[in-house]
């Protein structure tokens, strides 16, 4: 599956749960939301081999 976050991109093999995939690419699950086809996914969602997931940062500010 393909995972994108800001200008970064990763490919993961096999099936992953959202939470584990986020950790695998080195991010804190608390700090991003996972979106597939414009829809928000809960952390326990089991992703498909061919899914394209966009991670959206929740932190803003200054």
């Amino acid at each position: 599956m393909k995972i994108t976050y800001r200008d970064q991109e990763w490919e993961l093999e096999g099936r992953w749960r959202v939470r584990d995939a986020i950790k695998e690419v080195g991010l804190l699950p608390q700090t991003v939301l996972a979106v597939r086809d414009g829809k928000l996914l809960t952390e326990d969602t089991l992703l498909d081999e061919n899914d394209e997931i966009k991670l959206v940062a929740v932190i803003s500010g200054g």
């Binding site: 804190l28 940062a57 932190i59 803003s60 500010g61 200054g62």
Partner: peptide, 17 residues
Amino acid sequence: YDECPYAVGATSIRHKG
């Protein structure tokens, strides 16, 4: 989505982390 360019490395963002 993007933060203000001056927010990069701001203390408050570090504390949030």
